[in-house]
Every structure is written in structure tokens, then in C-alpha cells.
């Protein structure tokens, strides 16, 4: 500790001691009154955080072919999550930046590529449905955490033409460390959407050749519950799995495209490398 530091502390002590008796070397056994508060200085090491943190994974995935679909695809899927300086992040189909990071709040901007509905689907109930292209959506997010409890919200607006609507997804969960290498995270969530968004994915325009016109209303359209598990295999390797069930609600529930399956499932199992 340098002399300047010592001088500053002594100055601080002297400043606070104005009016007090001269500091005696011997202890005053009957001393009373306010003490002199000393401020400590933080000392730090050379340790640095890695700028790049993330995980790269690959595994088998099952998911609905499109929003509201009763048919599921089974395919190989990558799981890519990368963060730069704890600010910029890429998470599979999402990219974003944290603009504010406080003790209980992290918030920022986010964009995602939202999968559409292809016209080559073979299922009877949507064989004549209109194609909905993939859509770029811009949005904002906010998340809070209380120890192992977390709650997050993401709001998106369509910007690339497929829809001009808005959607909001809220989910919360809890982290269970069952042992030093096994983690279990149950969570539940709910999704809301505007009229425009609902019309794009669940509605039928008037004059359609195969379907009667259907105009769903905005509001809560899906609830989901998910259980994810991670088993630590080694310092940088994880075995990762997740199962998610979702159920359509209200107007989405009554959509002609969702009649085959109003409950949907997603699952992933793979190996992940942490860096």
C-alpha cells in the first residue's frame, strides 16, 4: 500500500476527528461517543473474465412443424449459445444485446428469426393452408432473478412482412442443483399475441378456397411447461436434455390449423461443449 493511500486515510481520520480529543496511545477505558470510521480500499488481482463464453451442442430434436401443428419433425439440431463480454449474445435463432444490467434486472434488445409455415405440408388439415414465410422479428427483453428463481419476458414485433403483429412470451422457473453434476430446471410460461399475429398464424382470410373465414382474437394463445436437465460429464462437457409441452388457448385453440393437435411437444437431447 502506497504512502499516498496512507496519507489519504490519515487525512480522512483527521477530518472525522475534528473536535475530538487528541488520539491517545493509551486506551481510554471509559471512552464513549462515536468512533472514527475507517474506509477500506478494495484490492484486486489480475484475474480477468473471458470475453467469450458459451456452449456449442448438437443433438436430436423433435418439434412441431409449425406453430400449432400436430405433426412433428425429428431432426439433428445444433445448440449454439455465445456471449461476448456479457453483453452481446447469440442463442440459436436469437441475437441481442444487454443494455442494462442491474442487481435484479437485465434488459436489452433482441431479434429472432421466426419459422413460418411451409406450403409443402402433407397433413390433411393444413394441406391447403397458405404459406407463411419465415419472419424477422425485433423486440426487447427483460429478465429478473431472485437467487435460483428467474422470470423473463420477450416482446417481438414482425418487421419483414409476414406479419406486422406483436407477441409476448413470459416464462419463469427455478434451478435445482440435485448434486454437483446434475441440474434440473422446471419452468412454465405463457405467450400472448396481437390480432395481426394471430391472424397470420391461426386465422383464415375470407374467400379462402378450402377453409371458412376465421378471425382469431389477440390475447393469450399458448401455455407451456418445460423440464430441462443437464448432466455434467466433464469440466467442459454436458449431456443436455429438455422436454416441453405446450397447449393452445382460446382463439388459437379453435383455429382450423390446430384442430389436429391442440397440445404440442418439443424435446432435445444432445451433447454440449462449454467454453
Amino acid at each position: 500500500m502506497g504512502c499516498a493511500l496512507t496519507r489519504n486515510i490519515l487525512l480522512f481520520v483527521s477530518f472525522l476527528s475534528v473536535g475530538a480529543p487528541v488520539l491517545a496511545q493509551e486506551v481510554d477505558m471509559t471512552r464513549s461517543g462515536q468512533p472514527v470510521y475507517i474506509e477500506s480500499v478494495p484490492v484486486d488481482d489480475e484475474r480477468r473474465r473471458d470475453n467469450w463464453v458459451g456452449q456449442l451442442g448438437v443433438g436430436m430434436n423433435i418439434s412441431p412443424e409449425f406453430l400449432g401443428s400436430g405433426a412433428h419433425e425429428f431432426n439433428l439440431r445444433t445448440d449454439v449459445r455465445i456471449t461476448y463480454k456479457d453483453t452481446f449474445f447469440l442463442e440459436n435463432n436469437k441475437i441481442g444485446a444487454v443494455l442494462t444490467s442491474r442487481r435484479f434486472l437485465r434488459a436489452g434488445v433482441i431479434a429472432r428469426l421466426h419459422g413460418g409455415r411451409r406450403d409443402d405440408l402433407i397433413h390433411d388439415n393444413v394441406a391447403d393452408a397458405d404459406d407463411v414465410g419465415d419472419t424477422v422479428e425485433l423486440g426487447v427483453f427483460a429478465g429478473t432473478s431472485l437467487y435460483k428463481l428467474f422470470l423473463s419476458a420477450e416482446a417481438y414485433w414482425g418487421v419483414s412482412g409476414a406479419h406486422d403483429g406483436m407477441s409476448l412470451e413470459i416464462e419463469g422457473g427455478y434451478l435445482f442443483e440435485l448434486n454437483s453434476s446434475f441440474k434440473l430446471v422446471p419452468l412454465i410460461g405463457i405467450s400472448f399475441a396481437s390480432d395481426d399475429y394471430m391472424q397470420t398464424y391461426f386465422g383464415v382470410a375470407s374467400g379462402h378456397d378450402s377453409y371458412a373465414a376465421y378471425k382469431p382474437k389477440g390475447g393469450a394463445y399458448e401455455m407451456h411447461a418445460e423440464l430441462s436437465l443437464e448432466q455434467r460429464l466433464a469440466k467442459n462437457w454436458l449431456l443436455k436434455g429438455s422436454v416441453r409441452f405446450s397447449k393452445l388457448k382460446d382463439s388459437a385453440f379453435d383455429s382450423p390449423f390446430a384442430r389436429e393437435s391442440r397440445a404440442q411437444a418439443r424435446a432435445f437431447a444432445g451433447v454440449v461443449w462449454l467454453f
Binding site: D86, G96, R106
Partner: peptide
């Protein structure tokens, strides 16, 4: 690792 959530931005470093 055990405190990382499924969303990157939700992992309070």
C-alpha cells in the same frame, strides 16, 4: 454452470 439459466441474458454473471 449450475446457475446458468437456459437463456444467455438471464445468467447473472
Amino acid at each position: 454452470w449450475a446457475l446458468q439459466t437456459r437463456k444467455n441474458y438471464m445468467s447473472f454473471k
